[in-house]
Nucleic acid binder design. Structure first.
Length: 291
DNA sequence: ACCGCACCCTGAGCGC
DNA sequence: TGCGCTCAGGGTGCGG
């Protein structure tokens, strides 16, 4: 679900709830590949600790402990990191939603998809990490321990330059969209913002990276930075699962030009938006505005 | 080194 | 109602 803007908003909103509070207890679900670090190790290591910082690297959240250990969180496709005070229908299945009276909707009790529950020594809210599909990840790193998932990340997408893209695109026969999704080239772009940025840049997603001119790469880089910043300003995209940690929806989905608009009219030229597979991902573009 | 693909998992929505 | 299918904002690991 979440790409750079959603992860960044999550970081900003959850930071004051996670940092500087002594952890009383951590509850988890059973071991699964969601837990790269086993649940019992997490519980033992985190109890009594307080986190001192929370930063974002690409789509990863990295929390740091006092003695230098790091807790890596990745939201995958359906991960939700939020306060126990958050209220949102996106935390409930559709059947659960419809069986509730409107005024009850949004009340949340940890369910089988709530893989992490942080309880704190103060009487403030708990912090929950819920993930229906379990494509998210949680991992603990010892002080000074390197991690290749983090180390292989490319430049942060908010800072991507045309020069960087142009350099990376040489010798790459793959589609330009696949290049944008490659986290070792630039970190943070996912399926929505790749499609949106390529629309604004006027470039078809399926074109070979190798065929891009320097000027086109400049345009794509500019649009990536602009679209991501704009999405952060509007609270990110809440399309199916994403909510901010306080339970609020983003609004960027209302500004989408192509993503999930298959068959609808392009706002610029009124051609129907097309969908095809590129890099095994659903890909949306305007056949008229993008060449 | 790079490429495409299978796979990890659960749920929603569709046509029949 | 139920079945079978497709689709979903993520990333990894494999063989070619």
């Amino acid at each position: 679900m979440p790409e750079l803007p959603e992860v960044e908003i999550t970081r900003r909103t959850i930071e004051p709830l996670l940092v500087g509070r002594e952890i009383a207890d951590v509850k988890t679900t059973a071991p699964s590949y969601f837990f790269i670090t086993p649940p019992d190790v997490l519980k033992k290591r985190l109890r009594g600790e307080a986190l001192v910082g929370l930063e974002r690297k690409g789509k990863y959240l990295v929390a740091e402990g006092k003695d230098g250990f790091r807790l890596l969180l990745h939201l995958g496709m359906t991960g939700q990191l939020f306060s126990s005070h958050a209220r949102s229908v996106r935390l409930l299945s559709s059947t659960a939603r419809s069986s509730l009276a409107p005024e009850e909707q949004g009340a949340f009790e940890p369910d089988r998809h709530t893989h992490l529950q942080f309880k704190f020594c103060d009487d403030g809210p708990d912090v929950f990490f819920r993930d229906v599909r379990k494509f998210g990840k949680v991992m603990l790193l010892a002080p000074g321990e390197q991690n290749e998932r983090l180390d292989r990340l490319g430049d942060d997408a908010l800072d991507v330059t045309g020069e960087k893209l142009f350099g990376a695109s040489r010798k790459r026969k793959t589609a330009i969209k696949a290049l944008l999704l490659d986290q070792s080239v630039i970190a943070g772009v996912g399926n929505i913002y790749a499609d949106e940025a390529l629309f604004y840049a006027g470039v078809r997603p399926g074109r070979r990276a190798l065929g891009m001119t320097r000027r086109e790469c400049e345009g794509i880089a500019t649009e990536i930075r602009r679209v991501l910043k704009r999405s952060i300003e509007t609270g990110g995209s809440s399309i199916s699962d994403y909510i901010a940690p306080d339970g609020t929806d983003g609004a960027y989905q209302d500004e989408r030009r192509v993503y999930a608009r298959t068959g609808e009219a392009c706002y610029e030229c009124h051609s129907p938006i097309r969908r095809k597979l590129v890099a095994q991902r659903g890909t949306h573009y305007c056949p008229q505005c993008q060449s």
